[in-house]
Amino acid sequence: MSLINKTKEFKIISNVITSKSNIIDIGCSDGSLIEYLKLNNNVVARGMEIDQSKIRTCLSKGISVVEGDADTDLFDYPDNLFDYSILTYTLQATKNPKVVLEQLVRIASKAIVSFPNFGHWSIATSLFFNREMPVNSTLDYSWYETPNLHFCTINDFINLCEGLSIKIEKKADLRKSVFKEFKGKSLYDSYFSESGLFLISKK
């Protein structure tokens, strides 16, 4: 799964990251985001990944990667080790998104998180009119085989951050491919944004 399209997502993330910063990409897959950020932002980066063959791909690219799971292995890192922790399209597949979010802002000064927006109009439509679990480009699994455990809407995410004393600093405007200052919930986003992409930090 990817957020609308990878190039766009990478570009938005790259634009918000300070150059030469120290980052960790959790669920880094074959390391393509890390490569992109190394090239464009000159970052010091490492990854965490659960899939063995993807880990070996990262190693062959010279990317440092630890076999691990967002749910259990973020505890191993000390506070504020990184400038940015990045979790793209994985939050909904974690067992305990609340704990994962807390860990993300604990191990890094800022965290970048993206997830599919379950409040998107097409999902609401699929449920309301077809009475079927939605399957589309961002939710490309049938209900019986999905790895996703915890779907949320953009508004749910905002509510959770408030409850956890996590500050939402910026929210990506996916149409314009830029991060913008977060100014609270937006009716437009909650209906029309296929994904949420946020820059958050500890309050």
Partner: peptide
């Protein structure tokens, strides 16, 4: 070992072969 090197910010990778 991995946990310690991580905590020290050392460039460490880890893989458990099945």
């Amino acid at each position: 070992i991995v946990k310690t090197l991580n905590a020290l910010g050392i460039d460490v990778s880890f893989l458990e072969i099945e």
